[in-house]
Design a protein around this nucleic acid. Structure first.
Lengths: 339, 339
DNA sequence: CTGTTAGCGCGTTCAA
DNA sequence: TTGAACGCGCTAACAG
């Protein structure tokens, strides 16, 4: 089945056809595409005209084969079901789209195996670089990328190596902020509800929470650890709480908090009257929940954009690129669930 | 800077190195990769062993250049800020990941221009096929894909052509369901709050709403049309409503409804006591909102998965593939906002 | 079942 | 500033 192009005869439109019709050599067309400044304005205009007429589109695979990498980057997200991460993805996609890069999206669903399979796939696709929100301490995946000289930026996870960029928010500070707030509001018996502690986010937020308690000289932190960080897991966690209601609950993310809130209200527990509740991430929907949720705000869209910029800088200027570990400070947003 | 591979000398590990070490020809290695059944089990095992040892990863660009297409598909979403679409994306990503395809994610943000730019980029990347949630009647983009023989499946938009697959939910039925429910609950003065009517979803849902009114022999539908389908736009819409409160509000999606709800409650309007409210999509967060939202349920994850399957079927079996226009029926989920 | 060979379409180099 | 020739790594087609 031959391809047909508007305004021309059959056959694939390649750089050669363009060259012929414009009366130049293929090499010149290539220069118009990649280094326009090196081509005389007049020649360039003519070539560009022909490109438009023929509806020519460069074959990315060929370019990529020659150059050793293409105009795509990989984006590996921990949890595509969480608006925090999809907002981050949106930030990445927006920037990459502006810079005319494609984004290959992968979800690891918090599983090391999936992360590794996906990294392998990205390497096959000859991506220019990779953005990763890593599963636990997944040095393995990053090492593979390094072996292959594929630049990477860690997202929502601080790099320990100085030859690696990362963009994060201080989760220990966030956990501390949350619990300090609860203490200030008079809570003493506080429960931390979180996902697996192998996930850095959970571990750090809990560490921050403990720190706040220590600083205040108060008792210890009760904990309920569940498998996932979803509203459903929040329901489950809340069942455990009902036996012995605490003064306050600090959830490791808003999705958990929404689940907890739902069960508490269903059981007739007053929030914040009987139990105060605080979440994490400040996703847009937390604001709209039954009792507007106090939360710790992070700027996911911005994190995504900045990480994307760092990655492209490293890809396109490997010489002058300076690795950075950027860490934002989270912010407490007080709403009704703790007032 | 030479690449170094674990357990081997410098230099890129290509199919040739593998062939040499395994004592076979490059062609055989290629067959092990692409058509394993055509290779003797013993030879295959040996080759696979060497592949592992050398940490060989196939160069996708070269494969793609040779074959004319790669192992990626494009995913073009109308609105990456809406959980309905990101859930759909998750469905697509899950299936493609199982089938070892990469997904290049693009957002059109409801702009025809961005859609076209992205389609062009996808063509450059030599994607095997494309999934699109189209902006208005964006025949242009789809036509370009057809010219280039790139299969596509329309998502959340019914195909009119029989040479095109699509996976949708019946939005006219959904709109009708919503308004019939409101009428049954005793509402008479009903307002439709929606985004631009050039977007099919808005137009269809409104059409369904009108149909329900006609069938019931009731009056006409008041309308508030806003620019976007976000909570923020919902706020704006709600301001217009305050001047003359209706009996009920039907929002074209849950994000709008959440925005409307927020303003109504702030202004002390009882929901559903004074005004009933119904949304659309039944995103997970609608359940957790201040007044749990009655909504029209659609199965986004499933839509994504099914569309992805259809697309791969068309890509991999162009001969036997039968185009399908699949339409799901939406479902009314009654919650507190209309009780 | 396995080996051999000829490009895929572009970017790059070097000479004109 | 432009043109001609070469080859990136792989797959398809055919020969053995």
């Amino acid at each position: 089945m031959p391809r047909s192009e508007p305004g021309s005869r059959d056959g694939p439109v390649g750089i050669k056809q363009v060259a012929q019709l414009a009366g130049v050599s293929p090499g010149t067309v290539s220069n118009v595409l990649n280094k326009p400044e090196r081509v005389a304005a007049k020649t360039r205009a003519r070539v560009e005209q022909v490109i438009k007429e023929l509806g020519f589109v460069r074959n990315g695979s060929a370019a990529s084969l020659r150059a050793g990498h293409g105009r795509t980057i990989g984006l590996m997200m921990l949890d595509l079901g969480n608006p925090f991460f999809t907002e981050m993805a949106r930030g990445v996609e927006d920037l990459m789209s502006e810079r005319e890069y494609g984004v290959i999206l992968c979800g690891s669903a918090s599983q090391v195996g999936r992360e590794q399979r996906n990294v392998r796939m990205l390497a096959e696709q000859q991506v220019r670089g990779v953005l990763v929100t890593p599963v636990s301490d997944s040095g393995e995946s990053l090492a593979r990328l390094r072996e292959r000289n594929i630049p990477s930026v860690m997202l929502d996870h601080a790099a320990t190596r100085s030859d690696q960029c990362s963009v994060t928010v201080d989760d220990v500070a966030g956990g501390r902020l949350a619990v300090a707030h609860l203490l200030e509001r008079g809570a003493r018996d506080i429960v931390f509800v979180g996902g697996p502690l192998t996930t850095r986010q959970n571990a750090d937020r809990r560490a921050g929470a403990r720190k706040a308690l220590r600083e205040a000289g108060c008792g210890t932190l009760r904990e309920v650890i569940v498998d996932e960080m979803t509203p459903r897991a929040g329901h489950e966690a809340a069942e455990h709480l009902l036996a012995e209601l605490p003064d306050a609950v600090f959830c490791a993310n808003d999705l958990l908090a929404m689940g907890v809130l739902r069960v508490l209200l269903q059981q007739g527990v007053r929030v914040p009257g009987r139990v105060m509740l605080i979440g994490y991430d400040d996703i847009e929907y937390a604001l709209a929940s039954a009792i507007p949720l106090t939360s710790i705000r992070q700027p996911p869209y911005k994190l995504g954009r900045i990480a994307a910029e760092l990655l492209l800088d490293e890809c396109e200027h490997p010489g002058s690129h300076a690795h950075q570990q950027i860490m934002f400070q989270p912010e407490l947003v007080v709403r009704e669930s703790t007032s």
